[in-house]
Write a protein that binds this DNA or RNA. Structure first.
Lengths: 224, 224
DNA sequence: GTTATCTGACAATAAAGATTGTCAATTCTG
DNA sequence: CAGAATTGACAATCTTTATTGTCAGATAAC
């Protein structure tokens, strides 16, 4: 029950300060600490064995604050996932943009950033690649959405002018591409990075090329 | 505690018959009923929400018989998974063999059988494609193994003469291929089969071709 | 038909963890 | 400093399900 004092601060009067922060700031700070702690704890023992208590201890907060920010464990998982993956996707987008206009070069840049980050952060990598599956419909939806974003970064979609979305075949191509890259990543991570980033990127790229060339083929068809 | 009468039937004397079956037969029959019931229940509510009690009810057996055949829920999950996937793999192998010697034709035959079966059995398909991830290390190992078998059926490995196994790059290629096919399958299943089997097979095959051509390339290198 | 074995129903126990509630100590405001 | 808001520690409760145990009735062997 997030207690917001609507009675006495209907105007913009700030709530009492604690540690120099007002109520909202303190709350979001705690929320962030919980997310960081969750990533830490998930990495240690996995999501399934991560208790609310353990996460709170890692965050140096008590259970009360857990329920202040999250309805339940699952909500925190989703928040943590979005936190990590959202940032990663931003970086990938930037890397792709910096690589210029060539589709192949952009793909290579984005993948290189992806695998580099995975290697830098083994713990969260494992959790968010593997354990994110089959938790609940809500989590599945979040994951599905992330997959779409991931795909669009690697191979920007060719939109169907008529319907405003990609065709059914293109969806399956994206799905396959993302599945391939993530499977490769998962294996690479869990075997503790036996190949160089460069080598893994090359292999992953070869699967992305399937979707890329198919996209090209479709564009050509349209323009002919 | 599986009670085996070692004292009085050290020789081949059969245990008392019930319903025409001896003790062993009855036990394996019950075990099979539990596996079938598990597949059913998993399909309804998912593995995570499938209680021992619900599975026993579906099997028309009491909890006692659950623990007679399985140490815990996870053991049953593994048994059910192996049951379903093992049979599927056998069929795929047979389909590939029937398709002759051409790698491309064998691939097509095996994939067609795979997607056909998925369409025939939506419930188990969903569970064993999706929920099998991240349950426990034991389950992960089983899944990993199944992935290897699956890959070997689709694209028979080119063994490295020196080391007797495939190279590191080939492993990642297999991983990516299987990941792509399974992701495509999962999407196709959960969207309730919007494309024809034929179309899905064509798309899945295009990812397998990545691994296939790479395998060819490596064979050529060796023979040169 | 009598006895030993097996079965099915169900109670009893156990364990783990989520969620809520209490209260004293701390920190701010005026 | 007095009083109010906020925090941290921790107890209490609730729920859920696995797992084990009991026992009366059913079934087969002799």
């Amino acid at each position: 029950m997030a207690h917001v004092n609507t009675l006495f601060m209907a105007s913009s009067r700030k709530a009492r300060l604690y540690g120099g922060m007002d109520a909202d700031e303190r709350r979001t700070e705690r929320r962030l600490k919980l997310i960081d702690a969750a990533i830490e704890v998930y990495g240690e023992v996995g999501y399934r064995s991560a208790t609310v208590k353990a996460i709170c201890e890692a965050a140096e907060l008590t259970e009360r604050y857990f329920y202040e920010s999250f309805a339940n464990s699952e909500a925190l998982l989703i928040a943590a996932y979005n936190h990590v993956v959202g940032h990663l996707h931003e970086e990938m987008t930037a890397a792709a943009a910096a690589a210029g206009d060539d589709a192949e070069a952009r793909l290579h840049a984005a993948l290189t950033l992806y695998f580099t980050r995975l290697k830098q952060h083994p713990k969260p990598a494992r959790v968010f690649l593997l354990e994110i599956s089959g938790i609940s419909p809500a989590v599945d939806a979040v994951k599905l959405d992330a997959g779409r974003v991931f795909s669009d970064i690697l191979v920007p979609p060719v939109l169907d002018a008529k319907h405003g979305d990609r065709g059914a075949a293109a969806t399956l191509l994206s799905t396959g591409m993302v599945g391939a890259v993530i499977s490769i990543a998962l294996r690479w991570v869990s075997k503790q990075y036996p190949q160089t980033v460069e080598d893994v990127v090359a292999i992953a790229a070869s699967f992305c090329r399937v979707a890329l060339t198919e996209a090209d083929r479709r564009r050509d068809l349209r323009l002919r």
